[in-house]
Design a protein around this nucleic acid. Sequence first.
DNA 1: TTGTAGGCGTTATCAT
DNA 2: ATGATAACGCCTACAA
Lengths: 348, 348
Amino acid sequence: MGGDTGSAVTMKTLAERLGVSVTTISNAYSKPDRLSADLREQILAEAKAIGYCGPSAAGRALRSGRTDVCGFLFGGQIAEAFADPYTVAFLAGLSETVERFGASVLLLRAPADGEESEAQLLQRAAIDAIVTCSASSDHPGTEVLAARGVRVVGAQDSESGDWVTINDTKAGRLVGKHLARLGHRRIVVVVPGDTPDDGVAELPADGSACSRFAAERIRGLREKLPDASFTVVSAGWRPKQAGRLAAAHALDQQDRPTAIVAISDALALGVLDAARERGLVPGRDISIVGFDDIPDAGFVGLTTVRQPITDKGRLAGRLAMDPDYPQRRITLPIELVVRSSTGPAPRM
Amino acid sequence: MGGDTGSAVTMKTLAERLGVSVTTISNAYSKPDRLSADLREQILAEAKAIGYCGPSAAGRALRSGRTDVCGFLFGGQIAEAFADPYTVAFLAGLSETVERFGASVLLLRAPADGEESEAQLLQRAAIDAIVTCSASSDHPGTEVLAARGVRVVGAQDSESGDWVTINDTKAGRLVGKHLARLGHRRIVVVVPGDTPDDGVAELPADGSACSRFAAERIRGLREKLPDASFTVVSAGWRPKQAGRLAAAHALDQQDRPTAIVAISDALALGVLDAARERGLVPGRDISIVGFDDIPDAGFVGLTTVRQPITDKGRLAGRLAMDPDYPQRRITLPIELVVRSSTGPAPRM
DNA sequence: TTGTAGGCGTTATCAT
DNA sequence: ATGATAACGCCTACAA
């Protein structure tokens, strides 16, 4: 105990003490079948004895070009990202697979424009691959990484690169069809987004100011509700709070919507809160829909479009860690899950 | 576009093209004051032109011994860890600080006993420092890391090493005093823990089967409630669900407790759900207390012991990244926050 | 099955 | 202000 010189012990140390070559030591760790089991055990024992804990990651990375690290690029602040059950579920699948490949996940925040120093952090990260989540799918930084030889796995279909995604337009259509059938014609869509002064921003109803996945969901939605009125609002990035604020704004209007579509379940949970605070019963007085089917959605009876979030993370991890995995562009199935939060549009 | 050979471009390439030495290139990035501004700009421009994106992390790590990576060691599965708002808040503070030091956070799962391969993952990780959270504070793996020269920052006081923590016994006492004053004498404590068959396990009432921080909270609690009856139960690791199950079990007994103390707010949220599902009004029919004061606690009116979670993360990051930070053992202040979930013990 | 040699890209040290 | 040189710890040929 006490601050020793630390890692003065290397493969060479071990080799000298045992009278074998460094190659043999190296093989003991990386290619167990290239030396006798006896010798290997002896080496491992001595290693433990003198406190050698395996090949140094730095040396190995430099020589082999592999780091056994998979980056995870998320948008927004970390607290916002991890307050979102979708992100957490995705990350759970991702890290499960990454770990199975003997690697770890490095958290990388997508730098906003002009954040020079954080951009460097991303560019220079020692990673074999990077997985983006929907909020950061088309980040410019990934191109540089790709040029550097880092495998990039996106959460959105694109012309180049690998990805695993869902059909967001179709997801929107599923919701649109459902709401159309129930007779809804006055609809508010809640999306994550920057907020100006008063906390709620109204955005172009065609979704042109939203991230792409949101825009596509909105497109599908409108396609099936051609004669409905649409308002798109945002109230920040922290999902629950944003949903609550945005819904509060919408519900306190003269001409209250009959349905609120939250672009994610995490937002929808906040929308439900806002409705209940006003004594409105979801599914009777107001219909509320989300996307993703996070675990809580079932618990609170939220109608939503299910996607296999954790599997998405697993597949992303697979694409990231296994360059030989044959299918490099994957679209996962989705499904409308009708629960109690939607019902016929009330006459008003 | 198109898979090029990748990172064939190095400092040497750049040096040759500009007719300067590699040292100068290196300095352009790491020691800007050791060369003329002119030359530096020229170098940076050429770098951008030929697609060189800064010193390779591997080379730098090997030579300098620094990786600019801070490990975060969490217990349990990743989905469980990040379903816990405490962990998320802590991580937010941690990564904020780590990023400020030009480094990133690497997610490391604490391997259970016998998970040889995952233990290797931890031991060989290329990190400058590692921060543990309460659930993994006394993990054996950290000792090896410390011996290797990795700075270890714990979330619990210990004889050796650096840490940032709170006084858990005192936190327990705050709750104990509060409940004693309200006349509670039949108390159930909910802790995270492995579950056997039926989903709820009853543990020794002295907390001896819990993690240390939980045990200390229980100790403080009992100290102030010397003549109360205690039952300690656990129902898994996913906080909300575990709290709900454990509370359901306790509330469906003949001799229902008058107060339920959840060892974390995340658990308490589940306890609240269970109470409400049974038509019990928290603070009137049953008192419910948590620990930590996560954001949702205020929202649902939960009485709890506040600790500055995000600041804890920030300080842990500081200790991890800055070996010269003078104070290496920090105990943060705590405070009882009384809300509506506690009230006088009902006569029964 | 085991050993030898060279180099991966960088930075520290010591010159100039 | 700039350059030459020598490691850093490991892995991949190739040789024995």
